[in-house]
């Protein structure tokens, strides 16, 4: 029977949560505030001019997208920055010397990234609910997409952390891959507002399905079917997890 070191996995998960919580101003409150600035700027300026989905103000349309964007970016940051810092300071050695398996290592890191993503997302959502009267059509659907998407981005962050040898590599990953894909995922607009070719291109962006599926949980309206978004998001989560587990099992760039 396959052994699972639950205690070890839990300890590493707790360590990762405590790590980001110990600098909560930087890891939770700052992203909440900076994301709300988008809401302030875009929401207030454009609110009266655009109606993306029927019966919704632009601010109301925007909020789920911003929540998901924050979840994605912070889940990514948590694993990637923790891993590269651990590599730089050398303290990754402590976990590598312990009887924690690659799967347990992966689950602990991803679990912590989901917690951070949800914490930041919840901060923005609370403002959206109380400040802009946004309601949730299906809380279970919203939670499901939030967890799956955060886990996928946590996995992508781990991949970036494993492959990066220095902060510069990680910054390139973040600025040239994560940021463009996030901004072009339909956070600020419906893809139906785009010209034909860009609508097609958007369908190749996995982040689009995360944002669209998440938004469906709020309004029961979306650009593509919610089931389609669920399959794409789950598929990417499985793909990224598989790549990570292969790399961790081989010890690529970690066990040299």
């Amino acid at each position: 029977m396959m052994e699972f070191n639950f205690a070890g996995c839990w300890a590493l998960f707790v360590k990762e949560v405590k790590r980001f919580y110990s600098v909560a101003v930087q890891t939770i409150f700052a992203p909440v505030v900076s994301t709300l600035l988008y809401l302030l700027v875009f929401g207030q300026v454009i609110d009266t001019q655009i109606e993306v989905f029927s019966g919704l103000s632009y601010s109301q349309f925007l909020i789920p997208g911003l929540v998901m964007m924050a979840i994605l970016q912070n889940a990514f940051s948590n694993t990637s920055s923790s891993l590269i810092q651990s590599k730089m300071h050398g303290n990754l050695t402590f976990a590598l010397l312990s009887p924690i398996s690659p799967l347990e290592f992966y689950l602990a890191f991803i679990g912590a990234s989901v917690i951070r993503g949800l914490a930041v997302g919840a901060g923005i959502l609370i403002v959206g609910m109380y400040g802009f009267g946004i309601t949730i059509d299906s809380p279970a659907w919203v939670l499901l997409f939030a967890v799956l998407s955060a886990a996928m981005m946590g996995g992508l962050g781990m991949l970036a952390g494993i492959l990066s040898d220095k902060y510069d590599h990680l910054a390139a990953f973040q600025n040239f891959i994560i940021m463009p894909l996030t901004f072009l995922s339909g956070v600020f607009y419906s893809i139906h507002a785009l010209p034909g070719i860009w609508q097609t291109v958007s369908h190749f962006n996995p982040f689009f399905y995360m944002v669209d599926g998440f938004r469906y949980g709020f309004f029961a309206q979306s650009d593509v079917t919610a089931l389609m978004s669920l399959w794409v998001t789950s598929g990417f989560l499985i793909l990224i997890s598989s790549i990570n587990l292969i790399l961790l099992n081989k010890g690529v760039k970690i066990r040299k």
Binding site: N5, F6, A7, G8, W10, A11, L12, V14, K15, K18, R19, S22, V23, Q85, H89, G90, N91, T93, F94, A95, L97, S98, P99, I100
Partner: peptide, 27 residues
């Protein structure tokens, strides 16, 4: 138990916490 050659640091946890966490990894 390995005492590695390179010095290692962790800016987030104090020594007692590090020892407790390491114990946790071993269950």
């Amino acid at each position: 138990g390995l005492v590695p050659q390179e010095l290692i640091s962790d800016p987030f946890f104090n020594i007692r916490q590090l020892l407790e966490l390491q114990s946790g990894y071993f269950g």
